[in-house]
Write a protein that binds this DNA or RNA. Sequence first.
DNA 1: CACGCGTGGCC
DNA 2: TGGCCAAGCGT
Length: 360
Amino acid sequence: MNADEFGQRVLEWFDAHGRKHLPWQQNPTLYRVWVSEIMLQQTQVVTVVPYYRRFVERFPSIRTLAEADLDEVLSLWAGLGYYARARNLHRAAGILRDRHGGEMPLDIALVQALPGVGRSTAGAILALSTGQRQPVLDGNIKRLLSRFAAVPGWPGQASVLARLWTLAECYTPTERVADYTQAMMDLGALVCAPRRPDCRLCPLAMGCVAHAQNREMDFPGAKPRRDLPVRATRMVMVRLATREILLERRPPVGVWGGLWSFPECPLEADVVDWCQERLGLRVAIQPLWKSLRHTFSHFHLDITPVPVIAEAECAKAVLEGERFVWYKSDDVQRLGMAVPVRLLLTALTDDLLNYEDRNE
DNA sequence: CACGCGTGGCC
DNA sequence: TGGCCAAGCGT
């Protein structure tokens, strides 16, 4: 099947079955498509949609995003994961404001130079928003092309990746590039699916090498896997008699970077001493009622929560400033703390306050 | 090139 | 129910 026929068939399929009502497809400006592409990195459409709506309502333009506090940007990202995306998005908005007149450039090299924007995302932004002829190679298209051409090997391997890029480039048409690009992602997500590809619905089945060999599931080649490491940590839940709880801003990089969580106390340290030295707090430890395992895609995190009661006057005096915050449950949304909201605040804090109630 | 980086859904 | 996967990129 030549490239013209490939594109023709894909576009015909798009007209009949492609997705045309996603939020970022309505008024697909460079800014709106950019935000959507960042959110969609390693994240499924159904998960993104509500976050996307809230985000572009609050930050409708590059300039509003650039002027915002990172804390507020993170607060709208809370729960979506991969928070470096939000930090990069905010930083890139500042770059666009300062060096590009507040506009997304049309030169793919400049787009790709923005933090958080790689080759595929840069291509998707320009192709979907302006129709510029740029290839895209996301996970869906990798899978589709791997099967169509029976490309052996794991796409994480440079040689395999290079071959897929060549195919993506070759099949990208000169007309209706936006529809074609959307169609390829839709085909990969809805028809050429990872688990159960439905080749009866595929407009490319007649040219698909993997299908001809009945080997759809052999492509793309499997990623070499190793077992997840386990990390252990301890989080100190400092509570005042007023039911306020202490949160600390996490470092800007690493797990949950830039978000707020309970302070982490080294496992080898004595909690009472550590609170005295690190936080300047005199505390009383409460009984521990459970520990918690949180599984990430790349490791297990075993968390030991340690509830402690601190003296209010001392605590207030010592821990004022940007690094720490005292909160009540109502304040969570304002602060934008993904981890505390979902994992720590809802689970551990509820337990902490229930525990307190039971003992009153 | 290998690894770090989240979360929800699927079986 | 634990392992796997999903619109990648930065280091």
